[in-house]
Amino acid sequence: MDHKTPSFPTRIALALSALFRVLFDPQFASAVERIRRGGVPISAETVQAGAEKPAPPPPLLKEAGPDAALQLLGLLQQEGRFIDFIEEDVAGYADAEIGAAARLVHDGCRRVLREHLTIEPVREETEGSRVTLERGFDATSVRVTGNVVGEPPFHGVVTHRGWRAGGVRLPKLAVGHDVTVLASAEVEL
């Protein structure tokens, strides 16, 4: 090392300027990242050279974290006995018996959906009505089926209005809370 360690005030100035460069200068940020991983500081030239190499392709598929799914499942069980209902073998029961239980499940699960999600139809038109899809329609929210030929505008009939989650409001969880327990076992003392 041929230069001295910078003084404390200099370091404050350096930290501030570095903060902004990290935020707005990607190459500088990757150099800092390298230093943080324990690598040696490298000159601007090497950074330039490194940047020209083809970057690894960004991942095309992502994995959904299990926490929110398990949490929602826990809520559906807690309020609507969802897992009890699905896990039970319905083969031996009469429809009336299944129907009675379904009321409970329907009532509770509906409460969960109403409380924690805002669910609204994608299309406001009633099912069966004719609609026109203009050029550039959102293919995620509308799925066209059947005689899909030619160029939009497309004319067709709404067979299903679709559903969209307008908002998700799941309860906050304590750090370290085990979401894999969907429903605690109960032991009456």
Binding site: E88, Y93, E97, A100, A101
Partner: peptide, 18 residues
């Protein structure tokens, strides 16, 4: 209005009272 008293155990259909 139908009222279903849920079973306490996990057997929901078999244990509930209608």
């Amino acid at each position: 209005v139908p009222l279903v008293v849920p079973s306490r155990g996990s057997r929901l259909i078999g244990g509930s009272i209608r």
